[in-house]
C-alpha cells in the first residue's frame, strides 16, 4: 500500500495542476477575462445590409476593442438588420451622435463593427439607438458598380 501522505500530496498536486489548466483555458485561451456580458450595456443600430457580420464579432472604436455584437435580427417592418452591440461598461461616455459602420478586417478577413465618435454632450445609454449606420460593403455590389462605371467611362470617351 502506498503511503497515505504521498497519495494525498499527489492528489492535491493533480487538483492544482488541473485548476491551473482550467484557469488558463478561461483567462488566457478564451475571452472570459477580456469581455464578460455582465459588465456591458447594449445599444442597437439599424443597417441596410450587414453583409457577413456574425454574432460575437468585435466592436471597435479607433481600432480598440470595446465590445461585441450581441445579436443580429431582422426588423420585420422596415426590412433592415437590427444589430445589438454589447459595449463594455468601462466605455460609458460615447457621444449620442456616434456613427457605426460594418468593416472588413483585411481583404478576406472577418467583418466587425467600427464606431466613429460624434461631438454631442449626451452619451449612449443602455437601449439607445445609434442613428447613423453605414452598411457593409458587399463585394458583388462594389464589383458591379466598378464595372458599370468603367463601361460608362468608356462611353463618355467615345462621345
Amino acid at each position: 500500500m502506498i503511503n497515505k501522505r504521498w497519495v494525498e500530496i499527489a492528489v492535491g498536486g493533480f487538483v492544482v495542476i488541473s485548476l491551473a489548466a482550467m484557469v488558463m483555458l478561461a483567462m488566457k485561451v478564451s475571452n472570459l477575462s477580456a469581455f464578460s456580458a455582465e459588465g456591458a450595456y447594449e445599444v442597437e443600430a439599424h443597417f441596410q445590409n450587414v453583409g457577413g457580420l456574425k454574432v460575437r464579432a468585435p466592436v471597435t472604436m479607433a481600432g480598440v476593442h470595446i465590445g461585441r455584437v450581441a445579436a443580429i435580427e431582422l426588423d420585420s417592418q422596415r426590412f433592415d438588420a437590427v444589430v445589438k452591440l454589447a459595449i463594455d461598461e468601462k466605455f460609458n461616455r460615447i457621444p449620442l451622435d456616434t456613427s457605426a459602420a460594418v468593416f472588413t478586417a483585411g481583404l478576406l478577413g472577418e467583418q466587425y463593427v467600427a464606431l466613429e465618435p460624434g461631438g454631442e454632450e449626451k452619451t449612449l445609454k443602455n437601449g439607445d439607438r445609434i442613428r447613423i449606420a453605414q452598411s457593409a460593403m458587399v463585394m458583388e455590389q462594389i464589383l458591379g458598380q466598378f464595372i458599370f462605371n468603367a463601361a460608362a467611362g468608356d462611353k463618355d470617351k467615345k462621345n
Binding site: L25, A26, V29, N31, S33, R56
Partner: peptide, 19 residues
Amino acid sequence: FWSQMQSKVSFGEDVLNGF
C-alpha cells in the same frame, strides 16, 4: 497568437462546451 486566440475562442461556447 494569444490575442487572436482570445478574441475567437469563447468561454461560454467553446471552453464550457468542451468541458
